[in-house]
Design a protein around this nucleic acid. Structure first.
Lengths: 231, 231
DNA sequence: TTAATATTGTTTCTGTATGAAACAATAGTA
DNA sequence: TACTATTGTTTCATACAGAAACAATATTAA
């Protein structure tokens, strides 16, 4: 595998915090470089002949197998300390990737994006630099390389601030879900419990949910309605 | 004047929407390239040996004469269409600036910032590319080059969304001001009138204002109190 | 068949915030 | 001294949010 630096915008990358929801927990996709013990956010570079948006969409589509991911740009990180040629050299050597020059070892600024996706539809696929990619509980992440932990922190801040305003939660759920599912998504993102009665009242008052038949889970109690988001 | 491309991060710039408030109106600083009839946002490039934040702070400090400007990064623009080598070449030639290569004519991504400053303290200073810089009413801006109008639009959106949450309004006002002044700032940013009684009640309930002696303006009516923001 | 239990759906009560209007105070002018 | 314009405050009605209680129901156990 050979990178040709002339095809890419130098000194600029993007990194994505990809959120999913499963087993009542908020998760994010993390890459692992097995031979280096390094964990990182999925990211990539921008070709000279494509827009930033296109680069990110294409890259994340390759990582997840999903097209038309909900994506939000939230911050561009440009400190001097964030670049670390040593670790980049190790990763490249471990993967047997060569470049026609040392452009990847140079300083990089990175544009941070977060994405919300339906966990069930994802087919996680490692990129050319890494051996594996997988879901990690948001509240039990491994130590991430460079400033990627900071990037995750800023991502969740922006997600929290926009959760209501942009009605983002449905991107994390399958088509049909119960009110409890929805509440769990909110609670896992906001990091605090929500009052059940008030949450239900608020969601119904938004007039964005369609109520369907009940789901009989087998539990010895009243069965919850299923909902979907209005199109 | 000669730029040395090796000192700068290529293909990356920043542009700033600098808000001020005067004569009951919201204004922004706009550069003009006299010999080209082109208007633009103040902006600049990032040196390889300085952080993005440092570059922006330094650049805006040079344009306004103010240090420690309140600055907020809000979006990075990376479309293919936003670059226009023709106009860049004209501007450079008109100003007699030469570069050791054509790096400024290449594609650029730009990081958008907005700034809020005390109008009275500003000493507007053109940059090396432009002949003049001045305040323009926010609701009567000239046609701006490239995608700068779009950048302004996104800036005001973010400013509106953060006005309350981050208590930004005081950055636009002098140390002492009346409740009416404050309300005018809010109205000019939000673009809609606020109820006088409720606005006053809300501001006072925030517990961020210190009340001082009255200001006798000479009008034949009750004199308003002066306020300052609590430190 | 019936009682028990866990969970869901809804209502009620309460305090707080918000919008609209009225009232009160006052610095200057006629 | 009356009048006017503006500011400071209060009042009233309404909407919203937190907490708790009540009602409904799917299953299990007696």
């Amino acid at each position: 595998m050979v990178f040709n630096s002339r095809d890419y915008i130098p000194n600029l990358s993007y990194d994505a915090v990809i959120f999913g929801f499963s087993a009542e927990k908020l998760k994010i996709l993390i890459l692992e470089y097995h031979n280096t013990g390094t964990f990182a956010l999925p990211g990539g570079f921008v070709r000279r002949d494509e827009s930033l948006e296109t680069a990110v969409n294409k890259g994340l589509s390759e990582r997840t197998g999903i097209d038309q991911i909900y994506l939000e740009q939230f911050h561009t990180f440009g400190s001097l300390e964030r670049s670390d040629p040593t670790i980049m050299r190790r990763i490249f050597e471990a993967q047997g990737i060569s470049s026609d020059d040392d452009w990847v070892l140079d300083r990089f600024l990175t544009v941070g994006y977060y994405a919300l996706i339906n966990y069930e539809k994802v087919n996680p696929t490692p990129d050319v630099f890494s051996d594996s990619i997988g879901w990690y509980d948001f509240d039990a992440l491994p130590k991430l390389m460079q400033d990627h932990s900071l990037i995750v922190g800023r991502a969740i801040e922006h997600l929290r601030a926009n959760l209501d305003r942009k009605l983002l939660s449905f991107n994390l759920l399958p088509e049909f879900f119960t009110m409890k599912d929805l509440q769990l998504v909110y609670e896992s993102i906001l990091g605090e419990p929500q009052n059940r009665a008030n949450f239900q009242r608020k969601m119904l008052s938004l007039d964005i949910l369609e109520r369907h038949e009940k789901r009989f889970s087998g539990g010895s109690h009243k069965a919850p309605f299923l909902y979907s988001f209005k199109k």
